[in-house]
Every structure is written in C-alpha cells, then in structure tokens.
C-alpha cells in the first residue's frame, strides 16, 4: 500500500514525511496513556485522512502492540478507513429509525448517483460512501451526513440535488474530513 496521501487534501500539499512527523508528535504525547490506542488512531486518521499501513505499523510499534492487534481494532470500528477517502464523506444512516423510514432506499439512490458501493470513493475523489449506525437524530429520520453537515428527512429522489451543492465550484467550505 502506498503511504502517500492521494486524497483531495493533498491540495494543501503536506507530504508524507511531514504527516509522519505530525504523527510522531502525537504518539510522543499519547503512547504512555492507558487506553491511548484508539485516540491515537483517530488522530492518525485525522492527519492522513485515512489510515495508511505505515501509520498503523508505527502506531503498533509505539504502543508495543502487534500489527495484527492494531489491525483488529481498526477493522472492528467502521469509523476507521484504510483507504483514502474523498473530499466529502457521505454517511447514510441505517440505524433502526432511519431504516424503517426508508434509509435503505436512500442508500440505494446514493449508490446509484455516486456510482460507487459502500466503502468506495468516486474517481474524482470528491465523495466516499459509508453506512452510519445512528447519529442520534432519529426524530429527523431518514438522515445522512456529508462530513459534518446533517441532512434530514432525505428523499431518494432528491439525492442528485443534494449532491450538486457539493459539486458546485462554490461548494460549502469546510474541513475535509472528520
């Protein structure tokens, strides 16, 4: 696996070396804290936009854990991604409330409009698609999130329109990733 950050955040231009340096700073601070593994992985994902293999191996080393154990933690939580993600992470909620109010249809429409499956990223690296398991907004079901934007009572037929806002040149300015 390449460790170069190929996602859209590369526009800002930090190279791999610089990102690894930032990871080192975080690890120096967190590695001796009990229960520090998951926060460290979250921070690593925030730095790189995803979890490249080199970063996970470095985290394993710093915490004196095997790479298999770190991989076990990363693969357990859907929050973590080991592949580069697009500029916008779309998470369609399939929690119970959203599911019964048509979340699955929303997901199907989203897959169709983006032309990717769950876990995939569009070729222009603009969108990645994941499934969410309840954002705590059940009263507004079905919901989906695009990065930190919550969209409520989403109708499958309106998905195209929703996405257009993010495709436009003056797309909402915001942090690229959680």
């Amino acid at each position: 696996m390449t460790t170069t950050c190929t996602c859209a955040c590369a526009e800002a231009g930090p190279d791999e070396k610089e990102l690894m340096g930032r990871l080192e700073e975080v690890l120096a601070e967190q590695k001796d804290k009990p229960g520090g593994l998951i926060p460290a992985l979250q921070t690593a994902q925030a730095i790189f936009g995803y979890l490249p293999e080199a970063a996970m191996r470095r985290v394993a080393q710093a915490f004196d854990k095997s790479y298999s154990e770190v991989a076990g933690v990363v693969s357990f939580y859907s929050f973590f991604s080991t592949v580069p993600r697009g500029k916008y992470l779309v998470r369609v909620c399939l929690g119970t409330a959203c599911y019964v109010r048509g979340g699955n249809e929303v997901l199907r429409a989203m897959k169709e409009k983006l032309g990717i499956d769950v876990g995939g990223t569009t070729p222009d690296r603009l969108f990645s698609l994941e499934v969410g398991r309840c954002f705590g907004a059940c009263g507004m079901a079905p919901v989906l999130m695009v990065n930190d934007d919550l969209h409520q009572r989403v109708k499958p037929a309106k998905i195209g329109e929703l996405l257009e806002k993010y495709r436009a040149p003056a797309a909402p300015a915001q942090e690229a990733r959680p």
Partner: peptide
C-alpha cells in the same frame, strides 16, 4: 500477537492483520 480477531460480527476472521 500474530493472530487476532479481524473485523466484527459474523464476518470476523481470526488471523493476521486485515
């Protein structure tokens, strides 16, 4: 620690990383 549960739920695999 070469072997560890990977993934979650029914699709869990017992094995090396990923």
């Amino acid at each position: 620690g070469a072997l560890f549960p990977q993934g979650r739920g029914f699709s869990t695999v017992i094995g090396p990383a990923f």
